Amino acid sequence: MGKRAEIDVDSSRTYVGPTNNNNNKFPLSFWEVTVALCVVVSFVLGLACVYLTMPASDYSFLKLPRTLEDLQILRDHLEDYTSDYTIQVLVGYCLVYIFMQTFMIPGTVFMSLLAGALFGVFKGVALVVFTATAGASSCYFLSKLIGRPLVFALWPDKMSFFQTQVAKRRKGLLNYMLFLRVTPTLPNTFINLASPIVDVPYHIFFLATFIGLIPAAYLTVRAGIALGDLRSIGDLYDFQAIATLFLIGVVSVTPTLMSKRKDD
């Protein structure tokens, strides 16, 4: 993959990333692709087990929702199964959500809306936070194994920025990661993939993810209860909702800023 260039940021040694003279070369090796395929097969087998325990029926409605109309159709059908086959629906939901998070498949916002529509606010938020944290953790560990060349190939500029910020904020890293999770400063997908590469410890990653996703999960799940009133995904995040998330993010990072002033 070529030699790795190194930089020294705030006296902590970190990697900028692999330098590759052949920009057209596929960033993952055969072994790395094999690991990813094994994970995919594991999820597929889990879903197959869920499918086999469900009653014989027409499941043509089962597909990843891409529009609100798809989601409403899925909700209408799954409502008939949720009360009688609660475990199977829950396990299937969790597997799909975690799989989507692990492999950066867009559309988890629809899954969060579905949780609200099927299970209500309290259970829905608990389910979304659990699956989102599990999926982010799965992505974190997979990236730790095989993600470095892929992340640097996709987001070289963001990686440089994120690496510098993490190095600067080691003492208040939990607050900074909470800020990133609550606010849309950096995409969650990027945070999941990049965190292990810039040496964000897993316990900090886990806590920031678990706590930081609660506000957005609540907004989305609550909207899922009134799914019929939604006209577009943009209705979820109006100015008030975004301002609230930023306010929570600022509060989460304030202790770090205050401690820096005291040190100065």
Rank of each mutant, 00 (worst) to 15 (best):
L145E: 10
L247Y: 06
V151D: 08
L230T: 00
R148G: 01
C139W: 02
L173C: 10
I225Y: 04
S252L: 08
K260Q: 12
G147D: 04
H203F: 14
N175D: 10
N192Q: 07
I233Q: 09
N175V: 04
G147L: 02
L186C: 06
A217I: 06
V182N: 06
A153E: 14
I146C: 01
G135E: 05
N188H: 10
P201M: 09
G212M: 06
Y218Q: 01
I248E: 07
F190S: 08
N192H: 04
L173R: 11
F161H: 14
L230N: 03
L145W: 12
V250I: 13
L207N: 08
Y176V: 12
K144F: 08
T183W: 07
A194I: 07
F239W: 05
F141V: 09
A243C: 04
A136T: 10
N188D: 08
A223I: 00
T254S: 15
G249E: 13
Y202K: 07
Y176G: 10
S195R: 07
S232A: 15
I211P: 06
K144T: 03
N175M: 07
P196E: 14
I242G: 01
F162N: 01
V251H: 05
F161T: 14
L154K: 14
K144L: 07
S143V: 11
P187A: 08
P255S: 02
Y237Q: 01
K171H: 13
D229M: 06
T209L: 03
G249C: 09
L236P: 03
V166G: 11
